[in-house]
Amino acid sequence: MFFKRFRRQPNRPRPTTDAEFVAAYKATGNLDLLGELYERHIDLVYAVCYKYLRDEDDSKDAVMQLFEQLVTDLRRHEVTNFKSWLHSVARNYCLMHLRSQRVRVGAGMDTDLPDEDRLDQLSIAEWPDDDDALDLERALSRLPDALERLPEPQRICIDLFYLKQKSYADVADLTGYDFKQVKSYLQNGRRNLKLILQK
Rank of each mutant, 00 (worst) to 15 (best):
M1I: 08
F2Q: 11
F3P: 00
F3K: 09
F6C: 05
R8S: 11
P10T: 06
R12F: 00
R12E: 05
P13G: 00
R14T: 12
P15M: 06
P15Y: 07
P15N: 06
T16W: 09
T16M: 07
D18V: 03
D18T: 03
E20T: 03
V22C: 06
V22Q: 02
A23E: 02
A24T: 03
A27M: 04
D32T: 06
L33S: 04
G35L: 02
L37A: 09
L37K: 09
Y38V: 07
E39G: 12
E39I: 11
R40H: 13
R40I: 09
I42C: 09
L44F: 05
V45P: 03
A47D: 15
V48F: 02
Y52H: 06
L53E: 07
R54C: 07
E56Q: 14
D57S: 14
D57K: 14
A62H: 03
A62F: 11
V63A: 12
M64Q: 12
E68A: 13
V71I: 15
L74N: 03
L74H: 04
L74E: 08
R75H: 06
R76D: 15
H77F: 10
H77T: 10
H77E: 14
T80L: 13
F82S: 01
F82T: 00
K83E: 07
S84P: 00
L86A: 00
V89K: 06
V89F: 00
A90H: 00
N92L: 10
C94F: 07
M96L: 14
H97P: 03
L98M: 06
R99A: 13
S100H: 08
S100D: 13
V103D: 13
R104C: 02
V105W: 00
G106L: 13
G108C: 02
G108T: 01
G108K: 02
D110R: 10
D110P: 05
D110M: 07
T111L: 15
L113C: 04
P114R: 01
D115W: 02
D120V: 01
S123E: 15
S123A: 15
W127R: 12
P128H: 08
P128W: 08
D131E: 12
D132N: 11
A133E: 13
D135K: 10
L136W: 14
A139P: 01
A139K: 00
L143Y: 08
D145G: 12
D145H: 12
A146G: 06
L147E: 01
E148F: 05
E148T: 08
E152M: 09
P153H: 12
P153T: 09
R155M: 05
I156A: 08
I158N: 00
D159G: 01
L160Q: 04
L163K: 10
S167M: 01
V171G: 07
A172P: 04
D173K: 13
L174E: 11
G176P: 02
Y177R: 06
Y177G: 02
D178K: 02
K180W: 09
Q181L: 08
S184G: 05
Y185L: 05
Q187T: 15
R190T: 13
R191T: 14
R191H: 13
R191D: 14
L195S: 13
L195C: 05
Q198C: 01
